[in-house]
Design a protein around this nucleic acid. Structure first.
Lengths: 197, 197
DNA sequence: CAAATAACAGACAGGTCTGTATATTTCTGG
DNA sequence: CCAGAAATATACAGACCTGTCTGTTATTTG
């Protein structure tokens, strides 16, 4: 449990970081165990002691990724709200920042689910659960700013806009879908509010 | 052994159909050449005579799939418009019908692009091009019913809704996203029209 | 210090994959 | 009818894959 700061991260952490990077860039099927241990600088048995199988490693990588995603959005939203943005504006700006990242290749959870092609796989189940949580977070942001009534009406559609923006950004290699989705979300909220007047 | 059926499809066509079915259900990386030739009932050299490499086969499958997708939407839209639907309503109903298909697992083009993890791969390039054409078709439908001005304003957002609906349907195993996206599209068009009055 | 734990290095088993080579049979068009 | 084209069956090369096994070296902890 003791952590030496000066030295390199633990073997387990190096494995997770390396696997996450390679899985994201090239896909979980394209990247082999040998590649991961070589780049992480660990022995094969070290990996298999921490993660009984590659499937377990894939799942662990996604679990770690979810924590990072939450932190990424929380940080960006906090930062942008401090600059005068609304939370929802900030959410879409955070999305746009993410699309601009070097090596952006869509959503790890979607990509893994697509690659595994098996809804019963633990990593697929986790990915579905993650999306539910992510969309719930989105719903909370909308509810905070526009009330639960509006949120209930528009959140499913805005969640679809977000997912569509992610996949379209991946497809086109452009960050523009974030702005399009942001504008569409605002339009939808405006129209829903207008109707309920 | 040789039963003379009513002209069984050519070897090439059997290969394409089998590969399309297996690639769609399990992914292009998960399905090997041996599996395809076994299920198509052809010899390995027959396959390699028609398609120099697996990558060529993947591309040919997508090319065939694009023709089918066009036909599928054209048929459904024609049928539903005859029943009194607008073209855009019919488009989203066609989407919903597709989501209800047994074995629906999202969009072949997106799935292949994700699996290959290489934007330069010919099949990835073709997938991007297909999406551009598909979204252009969508834009034409919108323009026909609401004018080019409205179409120009809302088509990118509605295309994102469509892509989001596809991926969300795949993720949740539900056809509901088609209805959500249809309603959102309607709302957006209404609001855009109202504003330009 | 000594014992237990973790990480290391590397070979290996047994299976998969794509693509090629060879030799034989079936189909088809002139 | 018969020659060439197409399709067949099978074996194989060479690379890669996951996961196991063995044995050695660090590191931590009692």
């Amino acid at each position: 449990m003791s952590e030496k700061r000066a030295t390199k991260p633990s073997a387990r952490q190096r494995i997770l970081e390396t696997a996450q990077r390679l899985f994201y860039a090239e896909g979980v099927r394209a990247v082999g165990i040998d590649r991961i241990i070589a780049e992480a600088g660990v022995a094969k048995m070290t990996l298999y002691n921490h993660f009984p199988s590659k499937d377990d490693l894939i799942l662990a990588v996604l679990e770690q990724r979810e924590v990072e995603v939450d932190a990424m959005f929380a940080e960006a939203i906090k930062r942008l709200v401090n600059k005068g943005r609304t939370k929802l504006e900030a959410f879409f700006l955070a999305l746009e920042e993410w699309f601009h990242n070097d090596g952006f290749r869509g959503c790890s959870f979607i990509n893994t689910l697509v690659e595994l092609a098996d809804r019963e796989h633990p990593a697929s189940r986790f990915s579905s659960a993650h999306k539910r949580r992510f969309h719930e977070l989105l719903g909370q942001i909308i509810a905070e700013e526009h009330g639960t009534e509006v949120a209930q009406e528009v959140t499913p559609a805005i969640a679809i806009l977000v997912e569509g923006a992610i996949i379209t950004a991946q497809l086109e290699g452009s960050a523009n879908p974030a702005r399009v989705a942001a504008r569409a979300s605002r339009t939808m909220i405006d129209e829903v509010k207008r109707r309920s007047r």
